[in-house]
Amino acid sequence: MIDSLVRMYSQVYKNVHSLKRNTFRLADVLIWPMIFLFTLTFFATYMGSDTVYLNMIILGMMGWRMIYFLNLEMVSTFVEEYWSKSLAHLLISPVSRLELAIGSAASGLLKGVFVIFTYVVFTGMLYGFAIPDWGMFAVAMFFMAVIGFSMGLVTLGLGYYWKEEAFNIAFIWPDVIVLLSGVYFTVESVYPESILPLINALPSTQAFNLLKSMVGIGHPDIPYLALLCGIWLIAAYLFNGFMYEKARRAGKLTRLG
């Protein structure tokens, strides 16, 4: 167990130390999230949004950042090793694919938590925003992390076989999920009724409903959210394993020569 935790920690160690040596990468957590925050909140205030709507946007951005960082960090950890031509060293080591996934997700979690913290500080100063219910917020963020991790498992699975091509997917499909899940609006107000059952079956829709409910919008269904997250997690894990073996059999996992 401890050996397993140490192998997971190896990914955090690598990411933290490479971040230290590569200051440009700090933009990932210091600059882009801020630009993103201010773009949306400035627009919302310009449009004369009320406090409730502004708070929903801020909470939505926090949730989305959590999903984004977990998914992206999992695949970027892998793809960076590929770009460095050092992937073979990683894959011939005793680290298992689950340890690799959890370790890199932990780095993403740290980044996500850091960005959410800066959001809390800046939105508090600028808009007087405060988390309405920290307990509920933590529960929502936990589910966001599970969703991000599940998405990362899928993207990582694609990465085992398609390598850098999968990196593009890592950027695209969180955006698609965000669009479908109604991060900044209620899904009922935008999507046709015929596709709502499908959209409501996304765990991210339910997770963002939970966040929205903290400002009085939407109706949370935590057991349903937990069930959907569980199904996604299991399906993503199985897909990840399937792709790993498929790549291993086809000789696409990595090359030594």
Binding site: K14, N22, S86, L256
Partner: peptide, 10 residues
């Protein structure tokens, strides 16, 4: 392996 690289930024 003489053909592999090493991890960057470390």
């Amino acid at each position: 392996s003489g053909f592999t690289g090493v991890v960057r930024s470390l």
